[in-house]
Simulated assay, not measured.
Amino acid sequence: MTATASQLQIPTGTWAVDAAHTEVGFVARHLMVSKVRGYFKDVEGTVEVAEDITQSRVDVTAKIASVETGSADRDAHLKSEDFFDAEKFPTMRFVSTSFDGSTLTGDLTIKDVTKSVEFDVDFGGVGQDPWGNTKAGFEATATVNRKDWGLTWNAAVEGGGVLVSDKITINIDVQLAKQA
């Protein structure tokens, strides 16, 4: 069977996040003049595609200790109690609550705080890899306020402003693998 919502056509059933071809990333303003990008290397999850696409379900977890921004010092700071506190809260999790084919809404839990987030979703399509495995691709974007999850550390900078923006853009580029 194939689930359909508008232009989205994807076979029903269970799909696993293909971690080798997936990036859960974020963008923050630094000094309010430039952007810092990062991502979580260790991501896993499943998508249950229902015949009625609006009944589909997403459940994805990222390990906080896998955060990478291109700076070992910044990565260590993000893992510390100032930000994610990876030792006490080793994962963050997103569980969907609704999907209409273009907007995915769900509960994002970071540091044991759960807030609803809406992602704008673009469907990349479905195809087969050279080994006969069925794959599907999606991109999703949301903008959140990091303070909503207790990520409040900051520092004032000379001339006004702060070191890290409150507004964070989450960019997800996911490839899914159809399960037998």
Rank of each mutant, 00 (worst) to 15 (best):
P90N: 04
G125S: 06
T54E: 13
G124T: 10
S165Q: 11
T105K: 15
T134C: 02
F99S: 08
D85I: 10
V162R: 03
E87M: 03
T46P: 03
K167H: 08
R57A: 13
A136G: 03
P90H: 02
Q55Y: 08
V49N: 03
R146W: 10
S96D: 10
F119S: 08
F40T: 08
G137F: 05
T114C: 09
F123G: 05
K63Q: 15
F84W: 02
I170L: 14
E87K: 12
S116Q: 15
G159N: 09
D107V: 08
Q128I: 03
T114N: 11
E51M: 04
E68N: 01
P130W: 12
K111F: 09
D112C: 08
F138L: 11
T105D: 13
S80G: 04
F84M: 04
V47K: 03
S56R: 07
A62P: 03
I53F: 11
D148Y: 04
I172W: 07
T46G: 10
V162C: 08
D42G: 06
T103N: 13
A50F: 09
T69N: 02
R74M: 03
W153F: 13
N171P: 01
S66D: 06
F123T: 03
Q128D: 13
T61S: 14
G137P: 01
G127N: 02
V95F: 05
E118F: 09
E139V: 14
V157F: 11
E139S: 15
R74E: 02
M92W: 02
V113G: 04
V126M: 00
V121C: 11
D112I: 12
D122K: 15
N171M: 07
E44C: 04
A65T: 14
D129P: 04
M92I: 10
G150N: 08
D129F: 05
V47L: 13
K111E: 11
V164T: 15
P90V: 12
L108A: 09
G160I: 05
V126C: 01
K115L: 11
W153E: 11
R93C: 07
V67E: 04
Q128W: 01
D112Q: 14
E158W: 11
N145Q: 14
T69F: 00
L78K: 00
V58R: 03
A86E: 05
W149C: 06
A86W: 01
L163A: 15
T152L: 02
L104D: 09
S98Q: 13
V126T: 12
R146V: 10
A76Y: 00
R57H: 14
E48C: 02
K111S: 13
E118A: 15
A142W: 08
V67N: 00
E68G: 00
R146D: 09
E81C: 00
L163M: 14
D148C: 06
V164G: 09
T169L: 05
R146H: 06
S56T: 12
V113N: 12
T54Q: 10
S56K: 04
F138G: 04
S96Q: 12
F99K: 08
G137M: 03
A72P: 01
D85W: 10
P130L: 10
L78T: 01
G150V: 06
V117W: 03
T103M: 09
P130F: 11
A65L: 07
T69Q: 01
E81R: 08
